[in-house]
Design a protein around this nucleic acid. Structure first.
Length: 421
RNA sequence: GCGAUGGUAGCUCAGUUGGUUAGAGCGUCGGAUUGUGGUUCCGAAGGUCGUGGGUUCGAGACCCAUUCAUCGCCCCA
């Protein structure tokens, strides 16, 4: 008989892990709702063209073929979403969400797929929660997004470091890329293989490299921020104003001159929250401004900014931190039935307790009294509701507090009232 | 895609230079115990030793391949 296994890089989330997942999701929904963001859910599958167009030809996701793409029966190519933003913007355009007002604030929680080598904190299917803020170009929008991200992380008891940089506009970056190429040209042959490829397609990404030889080549290279300061007054002002907002909001950050982004559509603000608890994969939450994307996807020019946060990584960071573990909600009552009459009455009793709004369970294996008590104990129930011939005769139940060991005889209604507080 | 390490019961692991019938703790199930749980005692079930091939009289151990996981490179959340 064949043994079935989940596919490589894709993992089950087991019952004992669910409470912490729910905690993350509920915290995120709460923080988003407070800031007036609305949830959006989009299909896992999109036309491949959407991601190819959104990411740009030079994006690593496209170049290194990390997309889960396949041909449908109709001959079209489909892809499991490798990122959230493109799907959300597609939906934004398809349903003209931008016509409802100047600013659109959306959030999502959904799985992401990338065909890459799995490792700790890196999966072929992982989950991201994120937001997209469309229609606002000013630095206050950036501050809004960063403040939300920070509150979300902190409320989960996680305190990574915020790194910030500016990429300038698409136009000003063009000149920077040429300057960077000019600087790297003499050392071009000494670059790593990946960086040689990047030199042609997207030299910015060489900053991401951890290869020492690439870093040597970058010594003395012009810095993005300096270039923006000198040639892009608008972006420079935007960056300064954002830093001012962050100071006012008391959100600490570090400027990281090597911080660039994988997708072509990013402009100006780029940021990442990084943790030293994740090994090679240090980014917990990352995002930035993408003022050119909506137009690229066929909409009218619309600024946008957002982030994506990897839930698996967030949980890894949280587990390695001081934050208290998240416990499952406790079962309130466990019914213990003694004798045939009581066992026959048990389903009705259990249902009555549940209908009163309390959680309640009982032993469906109908075992000996002792075993039922064992089961009540194991279920971590707060109370045992014991029913035998005596109780049936008096139309009552014995309510036992399993933490205290105390026990009282009373009517079912009284017992329910007592358990509710 | 590349390199390193690992895979023995549900879980955590032991298993001597290659030598009879592969063990422990925890957990599970049953009993002591059909009117009171957590403790204790007794017993049982549970393994094609990741998978496939090879070497050998003999492989959990050695060799090759493969798969999955972990760590690093790469890339990203």
């Amino acid at each position: 008989m064949q043994k079935f296994q989940s596919v490589r890089g894709m993992h089950d989330i087991l019952p004992e892990e669910i409470p912490q997942w729910r905690e993350v999701e509920e915290t995120f929904r709460r923080v988003c709702a407070r800031a007036n963001f609305s949830e959006i859910r989009t299909p896992v599958l999109e036309h491949t063209d959407l991601f190819a167009r959104a990411s740009g030809e030079s994006s690593d996701v496209v170049v290194t073929k990390q997309m889960y793409s396949f041909d449908g029966l109709d001959g079209d190519s489909y892809t499991l979403r490798p990122e959230g933003t493109a799907s959300v913007v597609r939906s934004f355009l398809q349903h003209s969400l931008g016509e409802r007002g100047p600013v659109t604030k959306l959030f999502y929680i959904f799985p992401i797929f990338r065909y890459e080598a799995p490792g700790a904190g890196r999966y072929r299917q992982h989950h991201q929660c994120g937001i997209e803020l469309l229609g606002a170009s000013g630095p206050s929008a950036d501050a809004e997004v960063l403040a939300l991200a920070r509150d979300f992380l902190n409320e989960l008891g996680v305190f990574p470091t915020l790194k910030l940089n500016t990429l300038g506009t698409r136009e000003s970056r063009r000149a920077y890329v040429e300057a960077l190429r000019a600087h790297l040209e003499p050392n071009r042959e000494r670059l790593s293989e990946d960086s040689k490829r990047r030199f042609e397609l997207n030299p910015l990404r060489i900053f991401d490299s951890k290869e020492p030889r690439d870093h040597e080549a970058l010594v003395g290279a012009p810095r993005l921020l300096d270039h923006v300061r000198e040639h892009d007054a608008e972006s420079s002002k935007h960056f300064d104003e954002l830093c001012g907002f962050l100071d006012e909001l008391e959100i600490p950050f570090e400027i990281d001159h090597n911080l660039v982004r994988g997708f072509d559509y990013y402009s100006r603000t780029a940021f990442e929250w990084v943790s030293d608890k994740l090994g090679a994969q240090s980014t917990v939450l990352g995002g930035g401004r993408y003022d050119g994307l909506v137009e690229e996807l066929g909409g009218k020019p619309t600024p946008g900014i957002g982030f994506g946060c990897g839930i698996e990584r967030l949980l890894l960071v949280r587990a390695a931190s001081e934050a208290p573990p998240i416990e499952a909600e406790r079962l309130t009552a466990f019914v213990v039935a003694l004798g045939n009459a009581a066992k026959a009455a048990a389903p009705r009793l259990v249902r009555a307790v549940r209908q009163s709004g309390l959680s309640c369970d009982y032993d469906l294996a109908t075992r000996a009294f002792r075993k039922q008590m064992d089961e009540a104990n194991r279920s971590k129930a707060r109370f045992a509701l014991i029913v035998g011939d005596d109780e049936l005769a008096q139309n009552a139940v014995a309510l036992k507090d399993l933490d205290e060991g105390t026990q009282t005889m009373l009517s079912l209604t009284e017992a329910c009232q007592l358990m509710k507080k």
